[in-house]
Each structure stands twice: as structure tokens, then as C-alpha cells.
């Protein structure tokens, strides 16, 4: 495998500093990282290790204090705020711990939300949102509001919203953190399926070793540094296809 050619995410010498109470805190320290296309990687580490910060940087939600970030051969660290927002809309799907669905919208409307930013016609938007909900197995819950759904179902809607724009990258921040074991397993199975059958690149932050087990690779962060790669948990989707 030529890692450089296959990498969809390339971080080089990335540092991230925050100012808190007049003091500069270095959260990420000179970090290099490559994530292969079609990978399903888990990021683990203790609280404050910088894993969420790293995820935010990869997703274009934040900018590094130094170094470069290349996603699918595009330098996102050099983009303006507007360019970054447009880039996120087209290339990244988000799955949050608390699902972050809009309570005033039905399941299908929540999934349709990112498509409002595209030139897709209204009827086509609805069709795509319904398809995404079918993929996550919620075809019979389309008109339900978030309050009418269980936590696992809400997270499925959130995943449908993440895939509806067909992004190249899905970032998931503690996607099972608010779920019971059974629902968590269902969500992880769904993410696994998206990775294996659709070849979606997924980067997931988790505290849960059982969740990390489901990823094709687990990386550990501590005090802003990667502690070294672990052996792959399983064969990544992009390698399986070759």
C-alpha cells in the first residue's frame, strides 16, 4: 500500500493552542497523521488528551495553530470561513453524542436539512432524505419528531443526516456515549455497514473500548500526542475492496 497515495486525511506538524485564563495551553503537539480512504478509525484517550480537538480540525470546524491539514488533497487549513462552511456542507457528515437534531423538525426534515444548502430541488431533497432514512432502517419513523423517538432512533436519524449529502468523510464524536449497550451496538453496526458497504471514511472519538473494537483501527492520544498506531482491528474497507 502506498499510504501517501491512499490517504484521505493528511495532518502534518499540526499543533493547536488555546488561551485560557491568560495562559496558552497546547492541546495538540506537532502531530502527524494519515487516515486511509475507506478507513473506520477510532480515536481514544483520556479526557483533555485532545481527541475532540483533533476531530474538529479534521472536520474543518476549527483551525490549527500550526501545521497543515489536507483532506482529499485539499488544504482546509488555508480556507476562509465561508469556504470551510461550503466545504463541510459537501464533504463531511457529522454524528454527535447528543444527536443534535432540531426538535421542531420531523425525522425526514432533519435529514433534509443539509440539502437546503445544495441546489437540489425540493422534491428531490425529500426523496434523498427518505432514502437515507431507509438506509438506517427508519422508514416507518419519517414523520416522527425527535421527542417521539428513542435515543438509538435519534442517533440513526443523525447518521442519516450525516450521509444524505454523500460526504467523503463522517466524523462521529462519542456516537454511543448517550446510549444503552443494545442501542450502542446497533449504531456501531450501522457505522460498520456504512464503512464496509459504502466505503465511507469514518473517524470516531470514543471512550468505550467496545466501540473502538468495532473500528478497523484504534489510535490513542495522550497529552496532545499520538501514542503510536495499534495493529488494525480488522481489514479496512478500502483494502478489502482492492
Amino acid at each position: 500500500m502506498s499510504e501517501q497515495a491512499e490517504s484521505i486525511i493528511r495532518l502534518r506538524s499540526v499543533t493547536k493552542e488555546f488561551e485560557r485564563g491568560g495562559e496558552r495551553l497546547r492541546v495538540l503537539e506537532n502531530l502527524d497523521l494519515d487516515v486511509g480512504r475507506g478507513a473506520f478509525e477510532a480515536l481514544m484517550g483520556p479526557s483533555g488528551s485532545g481527541k475532540s480537538t483533533l476531530l474538529n480540525l479534521m472536520a474543518g470546524l476549527d483551525r490549527p495553530s500550526g501545521g497543515s491539514i489536507e483532506i482529499d488533497r485539499k488544504r482546509i487549513d488555508q480556507m476562509s470561513e465561508g469556504e470551510l462552511a461550503a466545504w463541510r456542507a459537501n464533504n463531511v457528515g457529522f454524528v454527535f453524542q447528543s444527536y443534535n437534531l432540531l426538535p421542531v423538525l420531523t425525522a425526514v426534515e432533519n435529514v433534509e436539512l443539509p440539502l437546503l444548502l445544495t441546489p437540489v430541488a425540493s422534491s428531490e431533497r425529500r426523496k434523498r432524505a427518505e432514502t437515507a432514512l431507509r438506509v438506517v432502517g427508519l422508514q416507518d419513523r419519517m414523520q416522527h419528531y425527535p421527542r417521539q423517538l428513542s435515543g438509538g432512533q435519534e442517533q440513526r436519524v443523525s447518521i442519516a443526516r450525516a450521509i444524505v449529502t454523500d460526504p467523503i468523510l463522517i466524523v462521529a464524536d462519542e456516537p454511543t456515549g448517550d446510549l444503552d449497550r443494545k442501542s450502542a451496538d446497533e449504531i456501531l453496526t450501522l457505522l460498520e455497514t456504512l464503512n464496509r458497504t459504502m466505503g465511507k471514511t469514518i473517524v470516531m472519538v470514543t471512550h468505550d473500548p467496545a466501540a473502538a473494537e468495532r473500528a478497523s483501527m484504534t489510535r490513542h492520544l495522550d497529552k496532545g500526542r499520538l501514542k503510536g498506531e495499534e495493529a488494525p482491528n480488522r481489514e479496512p474497507a478500502w483494502e478489502a475492496k482492492t
Partner: peptide, 14 residues
């Protein structure tokens, strides 16, 4: 605020 954050994350602009 968190909803606006979610919307901004998925690509909505200020």
C-alpha cells in the same frame, strides 16, 4: 446556541 452550532457545523453560514 447548540442548534445553531450544529447548523453551522453541517455547512450553514453566519
Amino acid at each position: 446556541t447548540s442548534e445553531y452550532g450544529t447548523m453551522r457545523a453541517i455547512g450553514f453560514m453566519p
